[in-house]
Design a protein around this nucleic acid. Sequence first.
DNA 1: GTTAGCACTCAATAAAGAAGAGTGCTAACA
DNA 2: TGTTAGCACTCTTCTTTATTGAGTGCTAAC
Lengths: 353, 353
Amino acid sequence: MELSDRKQKILQAIIDEYIGTAEPVGSRAISKRNELGLSSATIRNEMADLEDMGYLVKPHTSAGRIPSDSGYRFYVNSLMQRYQMSVEAVEELKNALAERVSQLDVLIKRASIVASTLTDYTTVVTSPALNRSTIQKLDLVNLGNGMLMLIIVTRSGLIKNRVLAVDISEEDTSRLQSVFNERLAGRVADEITLEMIKEIEDFAETELKIPTKNVIAILNFLYEAIDDLDETEVYINNAKSILQYPEFSDVKKAREMMDFLENKENLVKLIGGSKDEITDGVGIKIGAENDFEALENSSLVTVDYRFGKRVLGKIGVIGPKRMNYAKVIASLDCISSHIDNILKQLYDTEGEG
Amino acid sequence: MELSDRKQKILQAIIDEYIGTAEPVGSRAISKRNELGLSSATIRNEMADLEDMGYLVKPHTSAGRIPSDSGYRFYVNSLMQRYQMSVEAVEELKNALAERVSQLDVLIKRASIVASTLTDYTTVVTSPALNRSTIQKLDLVNLGNGMLMLIIVTRSGLIKNRVLAVDISEEDTSRLQSVFNERLAGRVADEITLEMIKEIEDFAETELKIPTKNVIAILNFLYEAIDDLDETEVYINNAKSILQYPEFSDVKKAREMMDFLENKENLVKLIGGSKDEITDGVGIKIGAENDFEALENSSLVTVDYRFGKRVLGKIGVIGPKRMNYAKVIASLDCISSHIDNILKQLYDTEGEG
DNA sequence: GTTAGCACTCAATAAAGAAGAGTGCTAACA
DNA sequence: TGTTAGCACTCTTCTTTATTGAGTGCTAAC
């Protein structure tokens, strides 16, 4: 059944009001806004209809109405006004993002901070899993003191590095590096098998005559590092922001939420599974639409960020269901497109891999 | 005035009880413990004395007593029983700390996690400021794609790395690296001046004929990196744990605490200023002894961690004043000494610099 | 179709009373 | 003289009972 124009206006007014106050809104409050020129009694009738249709809910008989999940859904899909970010805000955002950025993971951490500052909600970002990335180059750097750094550079310019304690000569280091690159560079991380590693191991021992003990240590290390590339990393920001919303004025609820947010697997599942797009790259999940009990009263807005055409990861904002969707969407959208720009500038090539 | 043996026992009993329950403890509760064989009336008299002496406080007339800051102080200094960690706990701790550790900052982040898991309180660790460290080696690694990684290794084996977007040839990279090492290796970070950097800049331009634009970018970057070495980094862990203690059942208080914990400067000041040692490296600050209003009802226990003889940083536990001091101290102590061991193993040299 | 009016509901607030934990003091006891 | 039983007193906490007020739903009139 279609919603009459008037019903839509009333629903919108109610949700707008509720987003601002977090209090059930009554017929009189809407009537007094004087946008519709209707008496509270009329509004009341319409509200009763909207309730029957499932868009509104009453906490109890003598309270006003609050939006149901479907109410929010309708609002988000059809009613919501576009939020226009101020020129200054965009400028500030741009600067905050671009400042001294050299690596993708720095950039997306920054993006997460910017998003949470802008919206005052908790943000979650996932860094790209690199298992489908092409390895461009492997560097082995002998740091002295028996420390060896391994650096993996992917074609899209992502860099991972880690350090191993092992004693190896400068010469062996560079020979090993050459072998690594000969055999692994240009390959997709996923297709590198334990066997290939074993082959390198044999080669290094028999041909290069590097001591077995070291070879084993280093190649284990290499394998682990490559294996780790398919770990999606998750950063969370401003979790404490939930404490400021009346939805979490009960410490117990706040704790549950924090516990949920702490669990990386939850977050990966949550953000990864978010597909309910409304416009390019922006997805919204309202309340129970997220398949987690802990988020019953929260909503999640996500946006993809890309490098060229390839989706690298997502930025998500988690807040109460009555969040300012328009603003959140606008902010994320803006951040996402700026990430795109910055990455293009940084690597000035359209990247795939 | 000296506390009689009996008063001490009573004080201890009260504090032990309060630590467990967070409720004001009455004379009858102590009497019933039957450790002292005294009636509640007698205890009552003693408690009145203890209150006069400032060790106890009454929330109101008809409530039991709770320890004052001085009460806790006396407890911590003289009364508290040593906590003996179980062999398994120590073993577990050891494993958790040592697992795949190659770098100091990984280790201390790990230590922070272990400490908060063990104690269920919030932990804060400071990573060493390296401004007094000797730079052992500088590595420049050309990552391709117009990316350059700078790695700084200190004599104590600490590693910092960062990436800059700049186009430079392999050859120039290695020549630049040589210059860096010739001129800067062996120096203490603090004594590297802008002028020295400028000299390198000139040399690189005129002698090595590296394009001005690149030289400027790279040397700015180098200077920033060295400058950054004196930034103490702070990691915080398990902040949400405060939500489980009745002391923070009021969301407003929890929020204040979180706000405080979020501010890095606060933490550096807090942890850095902690000097009130009770035993080697362990410091305790109770309530108002911390010069921060936000910590009025919290205590801080810190422990140094060292590399050889040099103190690198601190690990701190923040919890309610009625925290389990004995356990916290034992845990931190244990962690600290294991860090020492691991570092020795890792770098197997007594480090200074 | 709209609206004024009114009875009704129910949470939230306030006020009053009861219960209970704990104290401080006094007087008796060993 | 130190210890303890006993009791009046205090003050919080819990429970109960009213009171208020926001908001609804329905009816009847415009």
